[in-house]
Structures are given as structure tokens and as C-alpha cells.
């Protein structure tokens, strides 16, 4: 539980783009899926940290945590968080008859996760939450 979200993102990055000269032992599909898991985990950790600062016992239901986030972190952060989380979540799951995600597809999510981590490090802003609803 001690691994920081940033380290998870870095690990995902290494999976998606192996260092030059090294030959990855895992296939691209598997690496993409593993990276998706790591990125989603990073996002969850960041949300944990965020809610920890708001209230000691936030619900564990991911969707609700992100719906409520809008009224603390603003519409944009909350909605991007939910969209990225949902996309990563879809990529994590095995579905029969569906192709695994490509590394390129997951790689596009990585900078978004990094941006979100930075946004979630901000102080929760309960005062302006009401005005956030207007966006």
C-alpha cells in the first residue's frame, strides 16, 4: 500500500516503452493490459489520497467517488478522471472475442493520468464547490 501513484505510472511507462536495447519478455497485448492495470491503480491511489484529505471514511465505490469529486475538485478534473478511469477499466478486463488493447492505445492515457495525479494533489476546495456546478 506504500507504492506511490507516480512510481506506478513510471512502471507502466516502462512496460509500454521498453528501454532501448532490451527485449521485452512479454507480448505487447499483455504489456498493454498490465500497464492499464498499473495506471488505473495509480489513479485509485491518487483518489484515495485526495479523499483522505477530505474525509476519513469515503465510500469505496469508484463511480460515486468520482461523481462526488466534481463538487470538490471541479467538473473538468472529475469528468476526465471518470472517463480515463472507465477507459482503463475496460482495457483491464479480459473479454472473449475481443482484441487486447494496443500499447499505443494505453500510452495515450499515460499523460492524462499524470495530469490527473497533479490535479488530485491540489487541496480539496469545498468553498467553491457550489460554483463548480455551473460549468
Amino acid at each position: 500500500m506504500s507504492t506511490s501513484p507516480e512510481i506506478l505510472v513510471k512502471a507502466a511507462d516502462r512496460l509500454l516503452l521498453p528501454a532501448p536495447g532490451t527485449v521485452p519478455t512479454l507480448g505487447p497485448g499483455l504489456r498493454a493490459r498490465a500497464a492499464a492495470v498499473l495506471l488505473r491503480m495509480a489513479l485509485d491511489r491518487a483518489l484515495d489520497g485526495y479523499w483522505q484529505r477530505v474525509t476519513p471514511s469515503m465510500t469505496r465505490i469508484g463511480k460515486h467517488r468520482m461523481l462526488c469529486l466534481e463538487w470538490y475538485a471541479g467538473h473538468d478534473t472529475a469528468r476526465r478522471c471518470r472517463t480515463t478511469w472507465s477507459a482503463l477499466s475496460t482495457a483491464c478486463h479480459y473479454r472473449a472475442g475481443e482484441l487486447p488493447p494496443t500499447t499505443a492505445e494505453i500510452r495515450t492515457r499515460l499523460p492524462e493520468v499524470t495530469t490527473l495525479l497533479a490535479a488530485l494533489r491540489e487541496r480539496p476546495d469545498t468553498v467553491s464547490a457550489a460554483s463548480a456546478a455551473d460549468t
Binding site: 465510500t59 469505496r60 460515486h64 461523481l67 462526488c68 463538487w71 469545498t126 456546478a133
Partner: peptide
């Protein structure tokens, strides 16, 4: 969205007080 959040027993009261009226207002 408001209904989904309102049904969550794990939602702490301070969050519910803050979030639900705003959602209903929307």
C-alpha cells in the same frame, strides 16, 4: 447521478451534505 450517490450507504455525511443538494440543483 444524484440517485446513485444517494443510495450509497458508505457515503460519509459531510460529503453527502455537500454533494447531493448541488446535484439536485443541477
Amino acid at each position: 447521478e444524484a440517485r446513485a450517490v444517494s443510495l450509497d450507504p458508505g457515503l460519509p455525511q459531510d460529503v453527502a451534505d455537500h454533494v447531493l443538494p448541488a446535484m439536485c440543483r443541477v
